[in-house]
Design a protein around this nucleic acid. Structure first.
Lengths: 229, 229
DNA sequence: GTCAATAAGATTGCTAACAATGTGGGTGGT
DNA sequence: ACCACCCACATTGTTAGCAATCTTATTGAC
């Protein structure tokens, strides 16, 4: 064992995840250049490991790489955010439908308890709790659906959208509106009505697209042309 | 310039694409081990470039990699093929809907000409031509939709499914059935009816899932547990 | 004969140095 | 003062070799 055993023992999370977190949390800001040697130093891994992570992050759309010119953090434009939400709408719709037919009675109880927690959060104006219970609901429905392919795709898309996800929840009337929509979805899923589940889930994400447009009008998205993927 | 300039000049396609093609075309069969040094030799690139390609192919689900143990071609199970087709159904449904509202008059003419070619192929029992015009129709609808995110996801999924895609077209009554479905989709898109377009596209891919189950009953998919992603 | 321990071989992952490439700044000409 | 050119610098991409790790075959005990 080396003198500095601390990092090795705790290095349960991959370099990829740490780098992605740094980007998503804004420690590395859009447009910023990512120099392999620097990152290797910062996350103390090999340059090869950093390269591997960069390749994957490019694939996820979080960064842009150009041959011999290096990588940079890629900002997400409004159009892209809307596209991503459109795709999420149909995929989460699919998952909601499958969750409605596939879940167990215990699953449905769990889902109802999440609904209760969400109602409480909104009643107390706790935006943070609303945001997290909302995510919990989406995730649990995906688990019930048992659709790995959709789940993997949704995960990848989430990384791109996390950055503005939170801003949406901060819009004034948003938690109240979102709550209504989530309750409708959960109601449909727990009543085992796949078509309703899909429809309400899609309606919910269509409403999120509206919220995104509102954010755009407020200037959250810089009028900036991102480098090509 | 080196003595063997031929490969360099023609190296317009990336090592990644060539490696992927080798897998999809069955030159590298499921379960086969992929040794970095061998691949570097075969595709004459650096070992680093091969590693980069392997990382991406793992991400696409075409191969499985285990730390210190190397990579191997990953077979696609029936369940996975069905999952992928379910995801395709909703994504291509989205694209069909957007194509119905977004395309130009020229787009719609082009789509109709593809429909004609497809009808001709089926009438002549030309399975190869049917298969290729069918793909052309799907691709053109995606182009009309102008939904890059969905398109990228669909591309990634296609690589996993190409291997059995062709087998589906070979089923006896398949071209006739598929033709009907495709014509319905194209009709809806060219009549600018987004809801119809989405419904017919989803119905088409649901029918493909049925065909997959038929293939499975015929033993096309080996009863083999693929290594985890 | 079967099983466990062990050693040899193969392959990945890492390190360090180097070559290739793109960038930016300075220099000289006009 | 402005522009083209050129050179030094920064950074990536490649190469070769080494250490860590896993696999497999061999040996020996029971």
């Amino acid at each position: 064992m080396t003198a500095s055993g601390e990092t090795e023992a705790l290095a349960e999370v991959s370099l990829l995840d740490r780098l992605r977190l740094a980007i998503v949390h804004g420690e590395l800001t859009p447009g910023q250049r990512l120099v392999e040697a620097d990152l290797a130093m910062r996350f103390n891994g090999s340059r090869g490991a950093v390269r591997e992570a960069l390749v994957l992050l490019e694939n996820e759309g979080l960064i842009a790489r150009q041959r011999n010119r290096g990588a940079s953090v890629r900002p997400v434009s409004l159009d892209e955010a809307i596209e991503i939400t459109e795709v999420r709408a149909v995929l989460e719709g699919l998952c909601a439908a499958k969750a409605a037919t596939g879940g167990t009675a215990a699953d449905r109880r769990k889902l109802k308890s999440i609904a209760t927690a969400m109602q409480k959060a909104v009643k107390q104006n706790d935006v943070l709790a609303y945001s997290s219970t909302s995510q919990e609901a989406h995730l649990y429905i995906r688990e019930m659906a048992k659709q790995q392919t959709a789940s993997i795709v949704l995960d990848r898309l989430r990384y791109q959208s996390v950055r503005y996800q939170f801003s949406v929840a901060m819009l004034p009337a948003r938690p109240a509106q979102g709550l209504k929509e989530h309750l409708a979805v959960i109601d449909a899923v727990t009543s085992r009505s796949p078509d309703d589940a899909e429809q309400t889930m899609r309606a919910h994400l269509t409403s999120v697209i509206g919220a995104l447009r509102q954010l755009a009008a407020m200037g959250v998205f810089g009028a900036y042309v991102p480098p090509a993927r």
